[in-house]
Design a protein around this nucleic acid. Sequence first.
DNA 1: ACGCCCTCCTGTTGGC
DNA 2: TGCCAACAGGAGGGCG
Length: 277
Amino acid sequence: MPELPEVETTRRGVEPHVVGHRVRALFVHEPRLRWRVPASLPAKVHGATVLAAERRAKYLLFRLEGGALRAPATLLVHLGMSGNLRVLPAATPRLTHDHFDLVLDSGETLRFNDPRRFGSLHLVEGDPAEHPLLRHLGPEPLEEGFDGGTLWRASRKRRIAVKQFIMDAKVVVGVGNIYASEALFRAGIRPGRQARGLTRTECDRLAAAIRTVLAKAIEVGGTTLRDYVGVDGNPGYFRQKLFVYERMGEPCRKCGTAVRQRVQGQRSTYWCPACQK
DNA sequence: ACGCCCTCCTGTTGGC
DNA sequence: TGCCAACAGGAGGGCG
């Protein structure tokens, strides 16, 4: 499931293949993604040069300039729950659920595959930070300025469970279901506790745990549970380092107590009843 | 402002 | 063995 580490791994993988290259063509094979891709989109990016491959939260931003574009624009790609981007020779035969191809002048294509079609593709003209999908996003956890104080201030009036709180993109971006459970384990905090009940010290520990778990996952190419693969088609290896996620009933890797699981906000949550208070 | 629940979609899994 | 329901999950959107 692409969360921040998987999206960042994808960004780093595609960057050297796309930056500085021109768009030979964009082929949208299946426009019915999370939002319908406008039929007019491919013509707009024709011949444009890719200036940069960036990431904001779980979105990839490809900065474009020139070609058919009147002004600089940004291709916004979201991998949804089951999406991946791969770099392939443009002639590689398509498989089911290959929904679009961004063919470059190098002869390579950036190919999007997404069985569940929860991913998305937008062309944003103007400042992407002002786009409705990005405008209200909270801080990047790996950037300067995100710390315990951020969580402390945001949580004082929040009665929701801390696990759902850290998955709220207005609080902090990029933390999905897997890393929420893992960060809470590392911080020693039970996922069901009310956000406003956290102490300042716990907020400090939690912010540090979020940063650590995301950074460590990026180092090994993210977490592959089912669909996710990086740009080269290889899985991520963080699954082996998960303490609690998808480990219900198995011994906690710190203390041996059986890991517990329950559904919170329609999502599975995992925790160790001994290590987390 | 906040919290809760529904929705989109398809492949996989588990129960009967 | 076969069928079908449940489940997985990112995140916008609607409602109270």
